[in-house]
Structures are given as structure tokens and as C-alpha cells.
Nucleic acid binder design. Structure first.
Lengths: 338, 338
DNA sequence: CTGAAAGCGCTAACAG
DNA sequence: CTGTTAGCGCTTTCAG
């Protein structure tokens, strides 16, 4: 399949001008006569001329595109974040290239490598739950490549970060369960080395502490694949149910985990909230339609995407190396069923 | 922010070779001595050399990237389709650039224009519910630009298409409601000029016919924004409820509409399935967790993405203009709550 | 006001 | 086996 798009050369030849004159006329340079400009513009329109962005990129050494790596776009939180990213990026004339790690470290590295090969100007990333080796990311960063972390942060790499107040969100959710009268709140959470896991578990523990409740560490179950595999969540729930002193409620720290718990509890014929309390992080818009309308911690996902993108573009367009990095912390909200 | 990536020139200079020799060595050409190859390869690795894809694109006149336009990635059906697209595209070395029309014609045209400006090699599109003017798409197509339609087809444009058997899916869903004992099945559907709307409504009508049921056309309500605005769906449901002879069940023709109906019915305090039956198209994985576990028509979204991408790449990589276009029709399945 | 020439990074004839 | 040259589409000095 072949089709030939019009180039500056085509216009130049048709009009008996030089390519430089045409180029200047198109960019409305002051050193071109009004007559010539009009001539060029008319002919360009007629040929449906559009500058070749690839040629531009090669010349300018930037592609005006940014990469985004998330674990899964089929996740309300991330798809909402991407909407925020897109809104800012497009407005500033940038294309967004989305990639999914599917919580796989290998896939993440592969994507990273592809993107790193100079076809994008910067990267927004929420690392996968399987990310253990930071070398690939660090290499990119030391290289001077603009990176902004959002949601799942890598603290070891000094750059802008955007996240929510995970500690507070978890604290509120746990406290909410305690206020409902639950005494033994278990926790089902993500891979242990994720920043969000550490922060949310800390918030959960703090809320218990504050209420004067001491629980064994075994009530916190870690899901290495972040709930990508329902089996993993089901196992975690089963383990909780088999504790000597079984918990009476569960706090789940992510979207997939929250719905995963619900699924597992349903299968185990445990009614929510009677047999087991449940609350968790979730940005799904279907929450209010679930069979057990649970309370959830909602993140300002769209805004998060916007803020992260603004920071990234700022990094990309900065003339001199940026030294002062910002950490933006947004607030979560606790949504109770109406 | 600046960082300089290694180029072939850098390697050439460091090794006292010409750029062409280096280029050939890197591509493992047979006309280069083993010694030189090794030298070049080693140095390239040391410099962390990666070919500049932009320069390659300029040369080869193709970017090895494809564009995808859907209404919303925050829609289970589309995010699953995109996973399918990605799996095939990445395997073949293509990058996927995703854009959302948000069911807006203007946004769709803007995106189309951007993509059309030669930075992608082909396009996969499910048109927005607001698409009325086909000119922009037609122009692209006549230009010889590879396009494959999936889900929401534009029949006027002759190219490959991938869709499900919408008629049969709708027929099955409606029949299911009738078998449950419902007599007056209303229908809430998308914008009237979408292919999926026509086909699904036809299936719905056929099922009623087959059962010997005649219902007024007013029982079919069209949502121009495809359920992007909950208000629109709520209005449609209200209108159905205010019909002289109110329907006893609703068939909704898309993901957003199905959950939208559920939301509206809940607000109207109508219980499903007692006060009102409900079934519809949906690929959400949360269906089984909803307060009323409804029966849904599920599409093989992942497979659809795969098939569409294979067809597109075939179109892109074909040497001669393709004349014979295929229409792949996949089957839906009716999922009943367990 | 306009043109010629160089160069962004890479490949591919065409010469040695 | 290796180097020279030209060119992909565009911008930008540098000369008229």
C-alpha cells in the first residue's frame, strides 16, 4: 500500500521557488513577501500539505511525545489517570504513548528499552508490582532522561513525584472499619516493595494503634502480582479466614484487590458486611452498583495525571538541568454508599 | 534538559571507521570482517548505542507505529480490545498509539488529523457515536491510508472490518428476557447511525417478532452520547417508565448503557429482576459482583483486537494495493450469573 | 526578499 | 572488505 504525501519540495517545484522560501512562507517568516506567502499557502492547502513530524523530530531532536507506563489500562484508576495525562499533553501539542507492564518486570524493562531509544521526550511511570531491579530506570535517569513518578514511586531516584496521601487514606479507611464496630481488621495488600504498599500498610497500622488495637503481622497478606491473578487474592483471603483468630473485616489496598476480595468472599459465601467487613482503595465507578455497597478510598486520578504531566513537560522543556524536585501529594476521599 | 545519545558517527570516529562500515557491522552484513564487526559491536555496547528510530522512520518512510481510536479506554470492552491490539502489534515490532474520541466528533477529527500527518502507518478505529460527517475518514482512505474498522463499522468505506455478530447477540439477549417471562421488552441503545446500533436493534426486533410480539417503536430509546452522560441514560429510562404501557424489561446495547440503566433503575427504586428485567452488552469483569447479577452479552474483545491488528498489518505491509477486503465476524456469548 | 548548502541519523548504491 | 556520496523532509545559517 503506497500513498505519497505532499512535501515542501513538491510545493517549491510547482511554484518555481526554493524549498527554503517555501519553508519560511509556511512558518510565516517576516522575510517573505506577502504575495509569495499567499501563493505558497494556497498551493499547500490545495495539496493538503502537512509537515512531516518525523523529519521535524529528527531535526529538532525531540519527538513531542511522552511515554506512560502503567500496569493495566483496564483499571479504573489508571484509565482515569491517563485521561488526565492526555488532557494536558494534547493541549500542549504532545502525543501520549501508553504502555502496559501487566505487572511484569520483564515487560516493563522491554517497554522501557523501547521508549528509551529516543522516540519519546519523557516518561511518566507507575512502576509494576514486580519491579525489583531498579537499574534500567536508574540508567535512564542518570542519562538525563526526564522521568516523573506517579502513584507508585521509586524513592531512590531523585525526580518529581506525584502521589496521594496514602498513609492518610489507609488510616481513614481502617478507622472507618473500626468505627463500624469491627475489631480484628486484616489487610490484603500489594507487593511489599511498592511505595504505596509501605505507606498504606503504615496508615493501617497507625489506625489500629490509635485505637489501641494490637494485631499479629500475619493479618497482613501480600499479593505479589497486585491482584492481577484472582487466585492470588483468593489465597490471601483464605489464609485470613484460616487464622486462629480470624479477622472480622478486611482492608484492601488497591482497586484490583478490593474487587478481588469481594469475589473471594462471595465464593466463600461470606456476606459483606455481616460476616466480614470490607473497605479498600478503588476508583471504579461501579462500586455503588455492587451487591454489597462498600466504603472506598477514592484517589483524584484525573488530577494526578494532569499534575504529573505538567511536571514532566516542565522537565522536558527546561533549558538547564533541574535540581529541585517536587513531591506533590494529593488528598484521597472516603466514599460511603448513599 | 539535555542528554546526548550515541550515534553511528560517534562509533565511527572513535574507531576510525566510516559510518557506513559501522552501519553494516551493526546490521551484521556479510561484507564486513569478523574482526571489525566485533570491534564495532563492543564499542556500541559500551556506548549503549541504540539506533535512532526517528532517523529510520524518515528513511524508510514508515514509523512502525499504528494508531487506535476508541471512544474511551475506561471501558472494559475497549481496554480488552486494546490488550489484543497491543499483543499482536508489539510482537511484530509496532508501537501502538491510543487516542480517545470521548464520543466527540470534533475530538475524533482532530486526532485523525494528527495521526494522518504521517506519523503512523495505519489506523484501527471504532468510530464515535457522534460521527456524522465521514469526509475526514474518507479523505484519508482515498489517499491510500491503511484503515481497519472494528466494533463500530463504517460501511461506506471499503476496507477490512472486524465485528461481532451483533444481530445474533441482541437476538439472544432479547430472547433470554422473553424466556424469563417478560412480555414488553424495551430497548436502550446508542446513537442511531452507528452500525452496532442498527444491527443490535434489528436483532432485538427479530427476537420479538419471532415470539410474535409487536411493540411500538417508542420502546426503543436512543442515546446520542452512547451513555457517556449518565443523565442521558436516566432520561431514557424515565421515558420508558412513563410509556402508557410501561415495559417490564430492558435490553441495553452497550457496556455503558447496561450499567447506566442499572444506576437509573436503582435511583428509581426499581428492583432487578422483580420490577424490571435487565440484560445488555457488557464486558465488565465486575458484572458478577453487581447487586443484581444480570445476564450479559459478552464480546470476544481481546480476540477482536488481535484479528483487527493482523488485518491492519497485512494491509500496511502489502506491496500492492489491496482490493479484496475481509469482514471478520466473531461470536458473542451470553453469560448468565452462576 | 530569495536561494544554495549544510546537517539531523541512518541506509544504500556505487566505487574502490 | 571498506569508504564516498546521496538522500529521506525539514530548518537554518550564510550569501546574494
Amino acid at each position: 500500500m503506497k500513498y505519497k504525501a505532499a512535501t515542501i519540495k513538491d510545493i517549491a517545484q510547482a511554484l518555481g521557488l526554493s524549498t527554503s522560501t517555501v519553508s519560511r512562507a509556511l512558518r510565516d517568516s517576516h522575510e517573505i513577501s506577502a504575495a509569495t506567502k499567499q501563493l505558497v499557502l494556497d498551493h499547500a492547502a490545495q495539496l493538503n500539505y502537512h509537515p512531516n513530524p518525523i523529519a521535524l523530530s529528527l531535526k529538532e531532536k525531540k519527538s513531542r511525545s511522552i511515554g506512560v507506563i502503567v500496569s493495566e489500562i483496564a483499571n479504573s484508576f489508571f484509565s482515569q489517570t491517563i485521561n488526565g495525562i492526555e488532557s494536558v499533553a494534547n493541549e500542549k501539542g504532545y502525543t501520549v504513548i501508553i504502555s502496559q507492564s501487566h505487572e511484569s518486570f520483564e515487560k516493563e524493562v522491554r517497554t522501557l528499552q523501547y521508549l528509551a531509544s529516543r522516540s519519546i521526550d519523557g516518561l511518566l511511570i507507575s512502576v509494576s508490582s514486580a519491579t525489583k531491579d531498579l537499574l534500567p530506570l536508574k540508567a535512564l535517569h542518570q542519562y538525563g532522561f526526564p522521568i516523573v513518578f506517579f502513584d507508585r514511586i521509586v524513592e531512590e531516584i531523585a525526580t518529581h513525584q506525584v502521589r496521594v496521601d496514602n498513609f492518610q487514606g489507609a488510616y481513614n479507611a481502617t478507622t472507618h472499619l473500626l468505627q463500624q464496630g469491627y475489631k480484628r481488621v486484616g489487610c490484603i495488600t500489594n507487593s511489599a516493595h511498592l511505595s504505596i504498599t509501605r505507606e498504606r500498610v503504615a496508615g493501617y497500622v497507625a489506625a489500629l494503634d490509635k485505637a489501641g488495637i494490637r494485631l499479629p503481622a500475619s493479618l497482613v497478606k501480600y499479593c505479589f502480582h497486585g491482584g492481577m491473578l484472582q487466585e492470588e487474592v483468593a489465597d490471601a483471603v483464605q489464609e485470613l479466614l484460616q487464622e486462629k483468630k480470624r479477622p472480622d473485616a478486611i482492608f484492601a489496598t488497591s482497586d484490583k484487590l478490593t474487587t478481588g476480595c469481594m469475589r473471594a468472599l462471595k465464593k466463600a459465601k461470606m456476606a459483606i458486611p455481616e460476616d466480614m467487613g470490607l473497605t479498600g482503595f478503588s476508583n471504579s465507578d461501579l462500586i455503588e452498583l455492587l451487591h454489597a455497597p462498600i466504603t472506598v478510598v477514592r484517589q483524584p486520578a484525573f488530577e494526578m495525571g494532569q499534575v504529573a504531566t505538567e511536571l514532566l513537560l516542565q522537565l522536558i522543556e527546561s533549558k538547564r538541568p533541574v535540581k529541585d524536585f517536587e513531591t506533590k501529594v494529593l488528598q484521597t476521599s472516603l466514599i460511603t454508599p448513599s
